[in-house]
């Protein structure tokens, strides 16, 4: 093993190696890393300038702080509503645990944080706040759509020209640039009242029993918008996204929703660019 690789692994181990004793949420005080000797990690020895008396571990500790702060900041940038709902201190702790649970594996930090919603729902102390997971899903959907391109428009004329046997082979392509968030909680209300533009002095009461919401998160030009959809539309899009023939998708939908108007669903899905292409 090259000296360089050995050194990088030792430093990486130091940066990440302190698994907190538990994830119980009970000991959320900061772990005292200064008590750990650098030799325990095989960290490379350091030169000492005459003017200071910093121990090696203290110098390495600066990098550990930077690492945790930078990923925590990235997480807070993607999940500002969660941060606001749980408060800075709690967010700090959840973020630190998450960084250990699902470290960054991409040089593009915007890819970091994709499993935060699921992690939150299992996090000690948050079990009873089930809506947090769905708010986090909404924030991740917003983040993904913000970095995705706008969906293209389906060629309606070509679609109308399909005849005969070809129509039985018809399949739609559902835009991969949109996201669906279905929740039993009023997640969009929660998201809206926690936007920075809202007056922070005002208290808005949201009744969690207000009912659920199904939303398609999508781009509209330079905006990310939320479009409330019916349960029929959710199922329509989900079935089509499996890539089945349109005819069998219709059959499945009519089985579960005998009264639904498939023509209307299709028109709306094309108009809003949720269906971007087709093949037959």
């Amino acid at each position: 093993m090259s000296v360089l690789l050995e050194q990088q692994r030792a430093i990486a181990h130091f940066l990440t190696g302190h698994k907190s004793e538990n994830v119980s949420g009970k000991t959320h005080g900061s772990v005292n890393h200064l008590s750990v000797l650098p030799e325990q990690f095989g960290l490379p020895a350091l030169k000492h300038a005459a003017e200071n008396r910093f121990a090696d571990t203290q110098r390495y500790q600066i990098y550990r702080n930077n690492y945790l702060i930078s990923l925590r900041t990235a997480l807070a940038d993607t999940y500002p509503v969660i941060n606001k709902l749980v408060g800075d201190e709690f967010f700090y702790n959840v973020a630190r645990e998450y960084i250990q649970y699902k470290p960054a594996h991409d040089g593009n930090v915007h890819e970091f944080g994709d499993e935060f919603a699921g992690f939150l729902s299992d996090f000690p102390g948050l079990e009873t706040l089930a809506y947090l997971r769905d708010v986090a899903r909404l924030e991740w959907a917003y983040h993904e759509v913000f970095h995705a391109q706008e969906s293209t428009t389906l060629d309606v004329q070509a679609l109308a020209a399909i005849e005969g046997e070809a129509s039985e082979q018809l399949r739609f392509h559902v835009s991969g640039h949109c996201r669906l968030v279905a929740s039993e909680f009023p997640v969009l209300q929660i998201w809206r009242v926690n936007q920075p533009a809202q007056n922070s002095q005002a208290t808005t009461t949201i009744d969690l029993a207000d009912g659920g919401e199904q939303l398609v998160v999508m781009r509209q030009g330079l905006e990310v918008v939320f479009v409330p959809v019916t349960r029929e539309m959710v199922e329509f899009l989900m079935v089509l996204s499996e890539g089945v023939y349109f005819t069998s998708a219709c059959e499945r939908l009519m089985d579960s929703h005998p009264d639904c108007d498939i023509g209307m669903l299709l028109n709306e899905a094309i108009e809003l660019k949720w269906l971007t292409d087709f093949s037959c």
């Binding site: 986090a136 991969g176 640039h177 890539g243």
Partner: peptide, 30 residues
Amino acid sequence: YFGFKESGFKESGFKESSFDKSGIIEGGFN
């Protein structure tokens, strides 16, 4: 400015289904 690639229509926060959308419309999207 790297952006996110199209990753299939899915419900946010859940793993993608085993369905591979890439075979459906070859070259149909950018």
